[in-house]
Computed example of a mutant assay.
Amino acid sequence: MRQPRSRPDRARSPLTAALAAVLATGLLAGCASTRGLESPNRGTTQRGLASWYGAKFHGRPTASGEIYDMNRISAAHKQLPLGTVVLVKNRDNGKKLRVPINDRGPFIKGRIIDLSVAAARQLEMFGQGLANVRIKVVRLPPKKRQLPISYPARGWRDSKPNRDRGSGFTIQAGAFRKRSSAVALARRLRRELDLDNVKVTRGRGVHRVQIERRRKQAADDVLQRLKDAGIAAFLVG
Rank of each mutant, 00 (worst) to 15 (best):
M1N: 13
M1G: 13
R2P: 08
Q3R: 10
R5W: 14
S6Q: 11
R7L: 12
S13L: 03
A17L: 13
L19P: 00
A21E: 08
A24Q: 12
L27K: 13
G30C: 12
A32F: 00
P40E: 09
N41K: 03
Q46T: 10
A50W: 01
S51V: 07
A55Q: 09
E66N: 00
I67S: 06
S74E: 02
Q79F: 14
L80M: 00
V85F: 02
D92R: 05
G94R: 05
K95T: 03
K96G: 14
K96A: 11
N102G: 03
R104Q: 12
I108A: 06
G110H: 00
G110M: 05
R111G: 04
I113R: 02
S116A: 09
A120H: 03
M125K: 02
F126Q: 09
G129F: 04
L130N: 10
A131V: 03
K136P: 00
L140S: 00
K144T: 14
K144W: 01
G155I: 10
W156N: 10
R157F: 07
P161A: 13
D164K: 04
R165L: 13
G166P: 03
G168L: 00
F169Q: 04
T170L: 06
A175S: 11
F176M: 14
F176I: 10
F176W: 11
S180K: 12
S180V: 05
A182V: 04
V183I: 09
A184F: 11
L185V: 08
A186L: 07
R190A: 04
R191Y: 13
L193D: 09
L195I: 12
N197A: 14
V198D: 07
K199N: 08
K199S: 15
K199L: 15
T201N: 06
T201M: 04
T201Q: 05
H207D: 07
H207I: 05
R208C: 07
I211Q: 01
E212F: 11
K216C: 02
A218W: 15
Q224D: 12
L226R: 06
D228M: 14
A229I: 09
I231Y: 04
I231T: 07
A232S: 10
L235F: 10
